[in-house]
Every structure is written in C-alpha cells, then in structure tokens.
Design a protein around this nucleic acid. Structure first.
Lengths: 172, 172
DNA sequence: TATTGTTATACTCTATAACTATA
DNA sequence: TATAGTTATAGAGTATAACAATA
C-alpha cells in the first residue's frame, strides 16, 4: 500500500514526525472506534436479552447503587443526559415497572426516582451478564495493562473535564 | 457513606478483591464515560461550527483519505454503519454538496462515493479544528501516557474483534 | 426570581428486513 | 443465486427552548 523500498526510511521518519504531532487525535480516534465496537455489541445484547438500551442501563446502574433513589436533576448530571431527556427515559422505565417516581414531602418541585423490587432484580441480572460479556471480550488483555489503562483514562477524563469547566466559567 | 471505622480495613480488603475481579468492567465504564464526555463536546462543536454530525464527519474522513472514493459497502464496513444507514448518511452529505455518488462502468450494481472539491475544502477545515480541539482537551496528559494508551487501546480492540469474529464464525 | 421538572419539537442515528437491479 | 444498494419502518437518543409549579 506504500511506496517502494528505497523510500522506506524517509517515509518512516516523516510519518513518525507527523504522528508525533497528532498523538491526541490518534488516541481519540482509536478510543472512539474501540468504544463504538464494544458499544454496538453491548447494545445488541442488552436489547436482545433484556430489552434495554444503554442509556436505560446507565440510569438503572445509577439507581442501583443509591438505594434511596436519586433526584432527576442528579440523575441527569450523573448520566450526562439533559433534564428533558431524563424525563423521557424515566417514563419508559417506569412504564416497564422497573422504577417509580416519588415526590418527597418538603419540596414538591422535586422528583425522586428509585428502583422497584422488580427493577433491582432485573438490573442485578443485567449487571451480571454485562460484566461477564466484558470480561469475555477483553480476556486477551492482561491485568497489568488494564490497571494502567484505568489510571491513564482517568487522567484523560480529568484533563477534559478541567478544560470544559474552565472554558465555561471563564477562568483567570 | 460507608460504615464505621472499625470495619474500614476489612471493607478495604473486600472492596479491593471485588474490584480485582471486575477490572474489565471498570475499565469499560471509565472508557465509556470518558468517550461520552468528549463525544458530546465534539458533536456540539461540529454541529455549531460546521453543521455536521459525528457519523457524517466519520464518512467524510474516510473519503478524504481515499481520493478515488469508496464503494458504499466498503464505507459501511469502515464506519461500522449498516448499508441501509450509509445510504441515508450519504444522501444528506450529497444534498449538502460535499460528496457525489457515481456508478463506475463495468458493474452497475456498484456506487462509489467521493468528496467534491467543496467537500475536500470543507472537511479540511473541519479536520484541522477537530484536531486542535482534541489537543486542547487532552493538553494535560503527557505524551508518554498517550503513546502507551495508543498501544493498549489497540490491544483491547484486537481482543474484542477476535472474540466477536470467532463467535460469529464458530471456531474450533 | 430562581429552581425543578415537564412538554414540545425537530432531527439524526440505529436496527431489521424486504426489495430492486445487476451480475 | 449471490451481490450491491435502496427503501421502508419503527423506535430511541439528542439538543434546544418554552413552559408550569413550587420555593
């Protein structure tokens, strides 16, 4: 796919320099395609085996770890889904009987969503399957690399978050 | 949020073991949330500054690097978008005057999509902006970590791909 | 007035399957 | 018969903004 042998060394150098200038871009594209690959598979399985979508799974996961439930605004922040769209997601999950909405005494503007017993059971099964899918898909990656990735991906997230929040609040 | 001090050590150990058993899951969740964070920002900027979506950007990027264009089936594979949906994406881009569809002589079933001159110009500007957004967002991550991530994320992708293709073809 | 959610809207993406034209 | 694309359909997600109820 590349040019003849005579030019290999030069090409290699040139390519290396070029790549060195776009490390962030290359990493992003690689993360994006990898995430897309895995997401599509996970979404497919969630739908066929549990009739759920990824955003729904995300909502349930948040509520599963908060037995007392979460206010919709908080749910919105944690899932990075806008308020208006959280309403729609929560409505579908409520229609499925997996969660309920309650208005606590004291502040009637507030709505708290929490899992029903059936929702807990259902999510528990989903989470177990989900975890085993991932273990299976990543089985060739050694634990050391995963630990490293965990920390490095966190660093990326921190960097991005910092730049986004700074940009929003107009820093010094 | 956690129990009293007496139980701390035990809890710590238990949690460590638990986490040790779910490294893949934790990594996936972290990658997913990071990707979502970045994607939302990139999508927002692509839309507001270029009136484009991420899947559209992806299509254009593929065509940009193949001056002679690509058959829609190939485009479908590379972007991980189904044939039918590629048709829709390509139609919108053609309506915007960024690409054209042509049927080569020889096999009239085939459709090749390629960038128009205007599409090349437009994408060139998008790609430059895109690259600088990412450099900016990831600016706090050092080059060494990025190089490491590049290789490790590749390993993940390979592992996932292997397991998906094996599963599909029923291996030995 | 500010906050919490809801409603409304318009688009795009996604998945699946049936279908047409060509080979 | 197999292949390349298209069409059709249904359902969700996403972003934005206007709105109602409550504080």
């Amino acid at each position: 796919m590349h040019a003849g042998n005579e030019a290999v060394d030069l090409e290699f150098i040139v390519q290396d320099v070029k790549e060195g200038e776009k490390l962030e871009l290359r990493l992003w594209l690689r993360m994006l395609s990898t995430t897309k690959l895995v997401s599509q598979e996970i979404r497919r399985r969630l739908r066929s085996e549990f009739g759920a979508t990824l955003p729904q799974f995300d909502i349930l996961a948040q509520l599963y770890r908060e037995r007392d439930g979460l206010r919709l605004g908080e749910l919105s922040k944690r899932t990075m889904v806008t308020n208006g769209n959280v309403t729609g997601l929560v409505e579908r999950l409520e229609a499925d009987g997996l969660i309920v909405r309650e208005t606590p005494d004291g502040d009637r503007r507030v709505t708290v969503a929490k899992l029903t017993p059936r929702g807990q059971e259902h999510f528990s099964a989903m989470a177990a399957a989900h975890e085993s899918w991932l273990r299976d898909l990543m089985t060739d990656v050694d634990a050391k690399a995963i630990r490293l990735l965990l920390s490095n991906v966190s660093d990326i997230k921190k960097s991005v978050t910092r730049h986004l929040t700074e940009g929003a609040t107009e820093p010094n």
